[in-house]
């Protein structure tokens, strides 16, 4: 299959206000960090080209950064639809943001109208691990327990500031998004079955970040 068709992967980043969604997104897409991000109102998006496998497949990842304040959820509902992966972010120094992960996931599933909620790819990021240990309130263990509870969601402890685990996490996100994209395509078997044919289980598959 040498289709040059470009896939569009839609990734949505959710989480409480101030957990570092914008920073993570910029770190991944531009490999930059700034102390000077403003609060996000509504939503912003960035795109990144990802090359899959041997380079025969290209995809455009569209990362959506959302406003964290609760009341903004109702605004974002419209664009949850068609998402290929959902990234849930908490701040390891902020227990409340950790507790809210579950409700962010539920909120997403309600509005995204995904075909099979059980298999939809989520990724959880516990951000700000660069901050001194004494200020970290959520341990890795707690994080893993929650991730397991929510259905074995992959968890990464990240730092957008020091660029820790961000690329690895987004590799996983890409993988999940591609899988989802594939599943959807399979679910709607049609004349587009030549669009995507990637061995996703292949360990060597990774994005060119």
């Amino acid at each position: 299959m040498s289709s040059r068709k470009k896939n569009l992967l839609k990734v949505i980043v959710l989480g409480d206000s101030g957990v570092g969604k914008t920073s993570l997104m910029h770190r991944y897409v531009n490999d930059k960090y700034s102390q000077q991000y403003k609060a996000t109102i509504g939503a912003d998006f960035l795109t990144k080209e990802v090359v899959i496998d041997d380079g025969s497949q290209a995809a455009t990842m569209q990362v959506w950064d959302t406003a964290g304040q609760e009341r903004f959820q109702s605004l974002g509902v419209a664009f949850y639809r068609g998402a290929d992966c959902c990234v849930l972010v908490y701040d390891v120094t902020n227990p409340k943001s950790f507790d809210n992960i579950k409700s962010w996931r539920d909120e997403f599933l309600i509005h995204a109208n995904v075909s099979s909620p059980e298999t939809f790819p989520f990724v959880i990021l516990g951000n700000k691990i660069d901050i001194e240990d004494s200020k970290q309130k959520i341990s890795a263990k707690q994080g893993q327990e929650m991730a397991k509870e929510l259905g074995n969601i992959p968890l990464f402890l990240t730092s957008a500031k020091d660029s820790i685990n961000v690329d690895v996490a987004f590799e996983e996100i890409t993988r999940g998004a591609l899988q989802q994209n594939q599943n959807d395509a399979d679910a709607f078997k049609d004349d587009f079955n030549d669009a995507i044919n990637i061995q996703l289980d292949d360990e060597s598959s990774s994005c060119a970040c």
Binding site: L8, T47, F188, D190
Partner: peptide, 17 residues
């Protein structure tokens, strides 16, 4: 029309973006 419009219109997707 028979694809239920799912992820089918790549052109449109690109344009939206």
């Amino acid at each position: 029309t028979n694809t239920k419009q799912h992820r089918s219109n790549a052109c449109q997707d690109d344009y939206d973006m």
